[in-house]
């Protein structure tokens, strides 16, 4: 595959795919974040000190939680719609419900991490 693209970066960033496209991209970013987390987890189990320090860093925890929770909640929506095709007609409603659930869960998780980081 050549490096030449038919779509420029600015056009790609300006693509108005709306809600479904946003969830698609965030799902990929979340999956990649979890892949990195999995590697860090294995290395910290093996006993690499720097990875253990990274695991207990609150900024790392927040990044993994924010993207990882989105991946988990969005994955649940995809699985439900995949296994119950009749619900696909309501996929926009499902995405809206997903965002509400995500904001509540991620908000609580970030609050707990910040509370711990500040010694609460």
């Amino acid at each position: 595959m050549g490096l030449k693209r038919d779509v420029s970066l600015s056009s790609a960033l300006g693509y108005k795919g709306q809600g479904p496209y946003l969830t698609y991209i965030l799902h990929r970013i979340g999956g990649s974040a979890l892949f990195i987390f999995f590697t860090v987890y294995i290395l910290s189990l093996v006993g690499v000190d720097s990875m253990q320090a990274l695991m207990s860093n609150w900024i790392f925890q927040i990044i993994v939680l924010v993207f990882g929770l989105f991946h988990a909640i969005n994955g649940l929506r995809i699985t439900i719609l995949d296994l119950s095709p009749k619900l696909i007609e309501h996929f926009r409603t499902a995405i809206n419900i997903e965002w509400v659930a995500y904001v509540l869960v991620a908000g609580f998780a970030v609050f707990v991490v910040l509370q711990n980081a500040m010694g609460g």
Partner: peptide, 23 residues
């Protein structure tokens, strides 16, 4: 199960950017 699930996810993203058969 995380590992099994992740393998497919990473390959799916990879396949979108590398289209050659050997890649």
């Amino acid at each position: 199960v995380v590992c099994g699930h992740g393998v497919h996810g990473v390959l799916e993203i990879w396949d979108d950017y590398v289209t050659s058969e050997s890649g």
